[in-house]
C-alpha cells in the first residue's frame, strides 16, 4: 500500500496517509472547487487500506481551519466508513484553534453522530 500524500492548496487540505505508521492526517482548509472530485481518490485509498489493515490502531488527525458544507458531508461519509470496521481500533483526533469556537462545535456535532470510534476534540 502506497503512502498517500496530497499537497495542500489555498482551498484544499494537505493529506498524509501513512500505512506504515497507521496515522492518517488531513490539515488545512477544505472548500475545493469540486468536493466530490477532490475526495474520491482519498475515499478510495481508505477503502483499500482498510482491506489490508488488521489488528492495528489507526489514528486519524483532522487539523482543519475551515471546511465548507459540501466537505462536511464528505467528512461524515469518511466517519461512517470507519464506523463499519469492527476488527480494529480507530481514534479520531479533531484539532481546532482554541479561539475558534465554531470549529470546536463542528467536532462535537460529528462526535454526536458517531457511535464506535474514539473521537477526541483537542484545542491548540
Amino acid at each position: 500500500m502506497q503512502r498517500l500524500i496530497v499537497e495542500k492548496t489555498k482551498s484544499s487540505p494537505a493529506i498524509d496517509f501513512n500505512p506504515d505508521t497507521n496515522i492518517l492526517k488531513v490539515a488545512g482548509e477544505s472548500y475545493p472547487e469540486n468536493c466530490t472530485r477532490f475526495y474520491l481518490p482519498i475515499f478510495e485509498w481508505i477503502v483499500e487500506y482498510l482491506k489490508g489493515a488488521s489488528d492495528v490502531e489507526i489514528i486519524l488527525i483532522f487539523d482543519l481551519v475551515y471546511f465548507n458544507s459540501s466537505s462536511s458531508k464528505v467528512l461524515l461519509d469518511i466517519f461512517d466508513l470507519l464506523e463499519e470496521q469492527e476488527s480494529y481500533k480507530i481514534i479520531v483526533n479533531w484539532i481546532h484553534d482554541i479561539e475558534d469556537g465554531a470549529m470546536q462545535e463542528y467536532g462535537e456535532e460529528f462526535k454526536e453522530d458517531i457511535k464506535y470510534i474514539e473521537f477526541n476534540i483537542i484545542a491548540k
Binding site: Y31, V65, Y66, N68, E99, D100, G101, A102, M103
Partner: peptide, 18 residues
Amino acid sequence: VNTTTTMKVFSIFIEQVQ
C-alpha cells in the same frame, strides 16, 4: 476582528459565492 467572527463571515462568503 475576533477569530470566531472572522471565520463565520468567511464561511458564509464561501457558501454564498459557491
